[in-house]
Design a protein around this nucleic acid. Sequence first.
DNA 1: GCTGAAAGTGACGAATGTGTCACTTTGCGC
DNA 2: GCGCAAAGTGACACATTCGTCACTTTCAGC
Lengths: 190, 190
Amino acid sequence: MARERKISLTELFAQTKQLLLEHGYEGFTFGLLADRLGVARSAIYKYFENKEELITAYMVDEMEQVFEKLTRIHDFPAFEEQFRFLLDLILYHDDLHEMIAIGKKIPETHPKVKENKRRLAQFHERMYDEVQPVIQRGKREGKMKPHLPDRVVLGYIFQSAAVPHFPGISLAEWAESIREIIMHGVLNRN
Amino acid sequence: MARERKISLTELFAQTKQLLLEHGYEGFTFGLLADRLGVARSAIYKYFENKEELITAYMVDEMEQVFEKLTRIHDFPAFEEQFRFLLDLILYHDDLHEMIAIGKKIPETHPKVKENKRRLAQFHERMYDEVQPVIQRGKREGKMKPHLPDRVVLGYIFQSAAVPHFPGISLAEWAESIREIIMHGVLNRN
DNA sequence: GCTGAAAGTGACGAATGTGTCACTTTGCGC
DNA sequence: GCGCAAAGTGACACATTCGTCACTTTCAGC
């Protein structure tokens, strides 16, 4: 019973992501976004009251997708496979941690923003809950060093996605190297 | 033959760093900085023409200090000590990589900015040149895995500083864990 | 004390971002 | 076709940042 949409939510979130990565949270404006979508700035206000709400909504959406993928970790029977899956998921998702950093800066101006941030924090916890058993299983089976704190191991794996890509080194080679370092370190076994 | 300074360059750079970490490049303004320094905004223009110039100048200053420390790596005779020194330097300098990321966003509006960015890039190269021999020495002495690309190893070590600190885990314990992972990985030797 | 030069101030016009609102456009159900 | 409601537009008032400039303050040397 209404006019056809010019703005697709998918496209809007995609461009939001792009702009956030390029300009950071404070450099993100409705004007920039509207230009990219080929639409008037005021049109975006039909969907989101301000940039805090829009950005947190985008992040919830992104988190949902990643979480969805992550839960498939339980489809693998062996620890080694689970660990490998986790590393792949994170290494080929290298912009997530930047988003997390940006998320921390968003002030809770409106109730909707507060609600979105609450959901984000919840996702974070749920992801941790999902993965920690894998880590503990690795320790229990004697495959992972027991004295390393779980949170540090997870934070470490997560952060590895941010290691810069250098020209001359392919993505696959890069990922393989990072995976090897996480598992066995840079030094030879003495 | 002039009036006493109210603005100290040291203090100015310190607050610049603070503000950059809190608000990012695009959220940094002369107004914010002037407030923190207890000075009029226009006073800062006596020293820097705009924020690009100020920020790049600060970064050059910071880089100089880090580089200065880094060169002491050659004071250590053994590879193990050099490697340990490198890790300590980076792990206890955990905001550097954020600065690098910010540096990439700065547009070259003025000649002075261009010059500063040139010097920054040069520092980057010089730091790499300083450390690469250590990596190669480790490989030559059979202590480091030869198939890992030098740049990935260095990028990796550098990036490790960004692993988040969790409450309940002391800085020392954190650093010790990270160091262990970099050297030998998270898995037990099968 | 007078002077000159560096240090700092306050106010201005220009540019950009924000949120809102009256308005137009579009398409579905009747 | 008519009407209605959702989608999108353009302009307005307000706030913030930017760079500049004429001005005042301070202090060292004469």
